[in-house]
Design a protein around this nucleic acid. Structure first.
Lengths: 225, 225, 225, 225
DNA sequence: AATGAATGAGTGTTCATTCAT
DNA sequence: GATGAATGAACACTCATTCAT
């Protein structure tokens, strides 16, 4: 439905030299494996996951894993590519909602970002990428490109439009967008990443989102003199 | 020189009066092991590190590891505690530097924070904690307390003093201190954590530190009307 | 031929109708492992046996051991159960031989018992059970039930029948049966358990069996006055 | 007090070429080690005992163990020799009690034997010897000679005297003595060796002792025609 | 294409033994 | 003589990977 899906299917069809009738069936098993792999990898990390458990979780035999993927590392990368390509960046669409005040848009953006970042999937992906970046450097790259840059790009675009409208005064929108995303990690997100207890109720998130948006506006709202 | 050093030397001197020459020797082996363990843990994570490799790296036999530590997890924790206690938070002293302008203090604080956070040790510790927090929840706690809270506390204190002097207008200094620390992770720190290439020259860091301090001041400098 | 064989074949045939050719193959590996395990366990005891040696002796890899059994203790128990169930108590059938004089039956019973008890397998099992009874209490229980109680039961039954016929005068046949079995361990069996040299030729055993039967008869033959 | 002590001290003094002033002190440490070793060996068997635990239990350092004994096997043998020489065969003295009826002597002998054989020490020694006889063949030999043969010898002597007095009619007193000792293991002793539950109250033992003595007398009491 | 039994190098850990102090 | 830190071979057990079916 979004451009994300298009990207995903495009990537698959590009390599779909085996397509036709075999593709759906083969893809089903493949997806089945990737789903099981994801569950195990997110719960146990790369080293902590065993191929046996993945096979068991996916409901296939261990041999089948090796028919579809070259090995553990390959399966791990495939899982991450799929996650990054297909499931990240649901914040994208939101920032398009024009017609609202800049503040409201920023508040909603912050609210959604915080909610996303403390979702089990996002926390798990962050954990595993940060943990395994030395062993799988391209993983972080993929994750960054698909998971962060797109969101960042949309926010940057929104900020640029706002600057053009004279609603904000920003010299480097890309840098400020990144700054905004980091401010969203204050308190709640950061503590959740460290598994520290914190109030992450919707109300607490909403309040924090307001605080972040206001802070951001104080930095960048045009000062009339 | 700092309170950290005092803590460390206090612990050491406490055991020094009954040992004399024996203590350094025993401590030497322990330190030797911890050093090797650190190298391997930081490079490979907890699961990826093997006791054999640690023994080899530390230049001792595998059995000696177990004479000094209860096991892998124990060694890991010991390494972590030592790092958290002794090597983190050298930023502490800085925020005491009164007599300077608030901006200069913030700039220097941001500069030091960025430098610290992109140091190999800090990057490695962050990686490993985030990666292993599910298996070692108390690790993140220790890291947070020693590595983050102390720095945060000092910054909070500084902000509170500045508010008292009328130089800043902050409702919740602790929250704003955390916000400042997260802004310090914009661009350079975050990219280094993802192993992405980024200009982390002193000049680039200095410029970013200035940007962060200015942003922070724009949020919290008193508005005269 | 005996009830023991029936038990064994019954268990096998129960699984044979859904397997056919696969069962024997899987069972073959299992039997192969159990055979190797038996050799090593009997020669070295439980603690003295290493899984590596068992694997080597059985001609399989160490991993295969763990594909078929949960671990060392499990393998040990499996070996034991099999031995206790299938190889002990071949004396059972003998006591049924009616139509002979009581004395002859007792002599033959003693003769067979002594022969059985000094067989390498019985000596090894006895050794290992006595040695490991603290660590595997259920082992001794199994051994007792399959190895001793059945034989004891048959002898008791025989004695009871003889009492009914007026050929013996026994108040507590179960106790006397046990007494008989212990008398069978005089001299030869006991010395073999201690690895002491002793004449265990068939002739010596036959003579001892006669002595035991005569002693037993002197205790329990009806005294007419 | 008994001949046992004489034997023990004789054995020690025979090898006391290092005697004089060093002997008592060295012997104290040696005894201390042997005591600790005994505790650990009896509780865990040979393989299950670790030199560290023995050192700890004896209250000496691990190195000291090796100053006094050649190694684990040597310590094990030394412990057994000492046990066999010094602590076994307290039944010896009893059979000398003449002036009583043969039956009473036999009853008291059986009673004492049963009590001795189900004592923790005797059960432990039996277990460990039977279990380790393959690895330490001379152990069983020592145990047999000191633990069994002496008792057997005394009983044989008593039986011979009784035969001479016309109170018993025994062709091979040594064989019959052994037979008597084995009958003493009926029911209670045997079950305790297998860790099976059994009534081992003094009353039960007394009753069993009576049964054994009566059985024995029925075999060997002179038949007047 | 799917299976799962077999593999063997690898893991964390223990422990009898040695030796400088 | 006593110590205990150091050793390294051995242990039970795991797991990514292969391959005959």
């Amino acid at each position: 439905m979004t451009g994300i899906m298009d990207d995903g299917s495009a990537g698959t069809s590009a390599g779909a030299d085996e397509a036709g009738s075999a593709d759906p069936a083969g893809c089903a098993k493949r997806e089945q494996i990737l789903k099981g792999a994801g569950t195990v990898f997110l719960a146990n990390g790369y080293e902590g996951a065993s191929m046996s458990r993945i096979a068991q979780m996916a409901g296939v035999s261990k041999g089948t894993l090796y028919n579809h993927f070259d090995g553990k590392a390959s399966l791990f990368s495939a899982f991450f590519d799929e996650q990054a390509r297909c499931r990240l960046a649901p914040i994208v669409a939101l920032s398009r909602s024009d017609g609202q005040s800049v503040r409201l848009t920023l508040v909603r953006f912050a609210d959604m970002t915080i909610h996303l970042l403390i979702s089990p999937m996002a926390l798990g992906l962050y954990r595993i990428i940060i943990g395994e970046v030395e062993k799988f450097p391209n993983l972080a790259d993929t994750f960054w490109r698909y998971g962060f840059d797109r969101t960042l790009g949309n926010l940057t675009e929104f900020l640029t439009r706002s600057v053009a409208r004279g609603e904000l005064d920003i010299a480097d929108p890309a840098l400020s967008a990144e700054q905004f995303l980091l401010m969203c990690q204050t308190r709640i997100v950061q503590r959740r990443r460290f598994r520290l207890s914190v109030d992450d109720s919707d109300a607490a998130i909403a309040e924090l989102a307001g605080f972040i948006a206001d802070s951001f506006l104080k930095i960048y709202e045009p000062r009339h003199q």
